[in-house]
């Protein structure tokens, strides 16, 4: 992420979360945080506990974020922010928390006759494979709530559409046949199928690495009738390191009424 990308990201983020942008020099940004945003990204729970317990006047922080330190005269005037910095990670997390569930409608031309919109339900999944190494994939699955057809890469297909969060006047929204809770189960099942069909040689290889290392360990203690405690500790460490695991997380998801 380049300096200008970060700058744009922050600007959009704060605008979208109703934090007033006090000044914007293109390489640094001063924002007045709202109380909610202060709690999310400033790491000061004790302050807020205190303010709330004593009923004091809350004073959310005003932040100056330097996005391009090569252009700044005085680094001490603000906080340098860059890809990888803790503050940016907190802002990413806040983005995730505040962008989890949506209900959107495709924009309909008001001058034309009534347009019918079909309901879809989309979940963006992140699938992680872990052993002593890691690999992640994103699956964006969308299901048509009328006929139950599921498609992958759903997010990519809708992200550039003209969507609005209010139902357009001239739109007629079909009532879904498949209930969202049921649809979620179907998508969960689908993601499980996708995982099952995937190539899992990585897990086999991790198991082989584990066995090879266990063999070495056993050799070290082969003459011992009773294995000492450190053998068990060492073995547990090996198991934890190579144990293949799969984790499914949901990034976000929502209901979309599309033409």
């Amino acid at each position: 992420m380049y300096a200008t990308e970060i700058h744009d990201y922050l600007k959009t983020f704060f605008k979208e979360t109703n934090c007033e942008i006090v000044s914007d020099e293109g390489f640094q940004l001063t924002v007045q945080l709202t109380i909610d945003m202060d709690k999310r990204i400033m790491n000061r729970p004790f302050y807020w506990k205190y303010i709330e317990a004593t009923n004091s006047e809350p004073n959310p922080a005003r932040l100056t974020l330097i996005t391009d330190r090569t252009q700044t005269q005085n680094q001490f005037m603000g906080e340098i922010i860059h890809y990888g910095s803790g503050r940016l990670n907190q802002i990413f997390k806040a983005t995730k928390d505040l962008g989890s569930f949506v209900l959107m409608y495709e924009q309909v031309d008001n001058t034309k006759n009534q347009t019918t919109l079909t309901p879809y339900f989309c979940v963006n999944y992140k699938v992680s494979y872990y052993c002593d190494q890691t690999k992640e994939t994103i699956h964006s699955l969308g299901i048509n709530l009328i006929n139950g057809v599921i498609e992958d890469n759903f997010h990519e297909s809708i992200c550039d559409m003209n969507l609005t969060n209010e139902m357009p006047e001239k739109a007629f929204c079909l009532q879904y046949i498949i209930k969202p809770s049921r649809a979620l189960e179907r998508l969960d099942l689908m993601i499980q199928n996708l995982i099952t069909q995937d190539d899992h040689s990585w897990a086999e290889e991790a198991k082989n690495r584990f066995e090879k290392e266990l063999e070495v360990l056993n050799y070290f203690y082969q003459d011992r009738e009773e294995k000492p405690e450190i053998y068990e500790i060492e073995k547990k460490g090996l198991e934890e390191r190579f144990n293949p695991r799969i984790k499914v997380e949901i990034i976000n998801g929502g209901i979309f009424y599309l033409k």
Partner: peptide
């Protein structure tokens, strides 16, 4: 029936995940 989140933040969140994704074991 809600509350629903911002579409902009929703898209940003997806982009961040994509950017931070670990596409390969190596």
């Amino acid at each position: 029936d809600g509350p629903w989140d911002s579409w902009t933040l929703y898209k940003m969140s997806y982009e961040v995940e994509k950017m931070n994704l670990i596409p390969e074991f190596t």
